[in-house]
């Protein structure tokens, strides 16, 4: 895969952070089509950018041939987005608390914490082909 591929409500990208903006454009475009308010669009867009960044860098370890996919659905007043990668997965319980005094000035390690703060629910799952994170936000 050399460039993003859009199929229905799913976008798949190569594992390169230069494609973060493509995913954002895709997700925000769909949310605006659903007339979601701008504040919630920003919350969702920030969260998706965190998950896709993690999937590229930590899941797929920036291996260009491995893909990251983001799928967006609307179930009534709930926006549901799943981000999948082809990596070995991780244990969310092992993530350090970024607001602990010792961690406050660290440059990294806030992504999942921010996602949990902005979304109504976050679910981590290991699949036969990689890992999958599903977020939900009421609108």
């Amino acid at each position: 895969m050399d460039k993003p591929v859009i199929t229905g409500n799913t976008i798949a990208i190569p594992s390169d952070v230069e494609h973060l903006a493509d995913v954002d454009l895709f997700i925000e475009g769909i949310l605006r089509g659903w007339e979601v308010d701008e504040s919630r669009i920003a919350d969702i867009a920030i969260s998706v950018s965190e998950l896709v960044n993690n999937a590229i860098c930590h899941g797929n370890k920036s291996t260009h041939d491995k893909k990251v996919s983001a799928t967006i659905d609307r179930k009534g007043s709930l926006i549901v987005i799943s981000v999948t990668d082809e990596g070995a997965g991780f244990s969310p319980e092992n993530i350090e608390n970024p607001i602990a005094d010792d961690n406050l000035m660290k440059e990294v390690g806030r992504g999942i914490f921010i996602v949990k703060s902005l979304m109504d629910s976050v679910d981590f799952e290991l699949t036969p082909t990689g890992s999958k994170v599903t977020i939900e936000k009421g609108v």
Binding site: A45, I46, E107, R110, G111
Partner: peptide, 10 residues
């Protein structure tokens, strides 16, 4: 418009 944890890290 917004930044994520990467922006905060910078």
């Amino acid at each position: 418009d917004w930044m994520n944890s990467t922006g905060l890290g910078i």
